[in-house]
């Protein structure tokens, strides 16, 4: 179980973004997280993924603190271009995490023709598929999907979610879906939390 316990967070001296927040994601569970912009949805997602340290409170991943090495809580960014090294080729970006098999590569619609290109040489939708494929390494237990399809057209969105949900189910991953798109959350999430 991925747990946020009594999380508080503030940016510099400003008023707290998160104040005593608790949240738990069980393996195999898909939870929607919504709320107005500025409510701290992405901040909570990044704290859960261990990218930010909370001011107080703690994050437990299957009962322990964030372990060193491969992060079992993978954070998927709204703009995948911020989640990759612009000087690395797509092939290197994926293989940093793992060597995906053919079936999964095809399921996510990642073309081997992109492997020797750089992130700016493929489109945003294509790069999001690359980021997803990278995040589905075998050691991944939880996914934080932060508005991952907000910039995609409806067909690509439906396609990416169908693969993601199928894979998450077969591996019993816990997924936190952050979005302001209520129709989308009602489709993909088992329950929806508002902050």
């Amino acid at each position: 179980m991925l747990e946020a316990q009594n999380i508080c967070f503030r940016y510099r001296a400003k008023s707290p973004v998160l104040d005593s927040v608790d949240l738990a994601v069980h393996p195999g569970e898909i939870i929607g997280l919504t709320g107005p912009s500025g409510a701290g949805k992405s901040t909570l997602g990044r704290i859960l993924a261990g990218h930010y340290q909370p001011a107080s409170g703690r994050i437990l991943v299957d009962g322990i603190f964030h372990p060193p090495g491969f992060n079992p809580v993978q954070y998927l960014h709204q703009s995948p271009v911020f989640a990759v090294d612009p000087r690395w080729t797509i092939g290197r970006i994926i293989s940093e995490a793992w060597q995906p098999d053919e079936t999964l590569r095809q399921a996510f619609g990642v073309s081997p023709a992109w492997f020797d290109r750089y992130p700016h040489e493929i489109s945003g939708g294509e790069l999001q598929r690359v980021a997803l494929l990278r995040a589905f390494a075998p050691q991944t237990r939880y996914l934080i999907a932060d508005e991952i399809s907000a910039q995609l057209d409806p067909l690509t969105q439906a396609q990416i979610w169908s693969v993601l949900l199928k894979q998450a189910e077969s591996r019993r991953l816990g997924v936190l879906v952050i979005s302001h798109d209520m129709p989308l959350l009602r489709r993909v999430a088992q329950r929806i939390v508002t902050i």
Partner: peptide, 18 residues
């Protein structure tokens, strides 16, 4: 039609080649 049916508020279906 495929785009229309792919919207979450409609079918959320992938039809044709995306």
């Amino acid at each position: 039609r495929a785009l229309w049916h792919a919207l979450p508020q409609n079918g959320f279906r992938v039809t044709g080649d995306a």
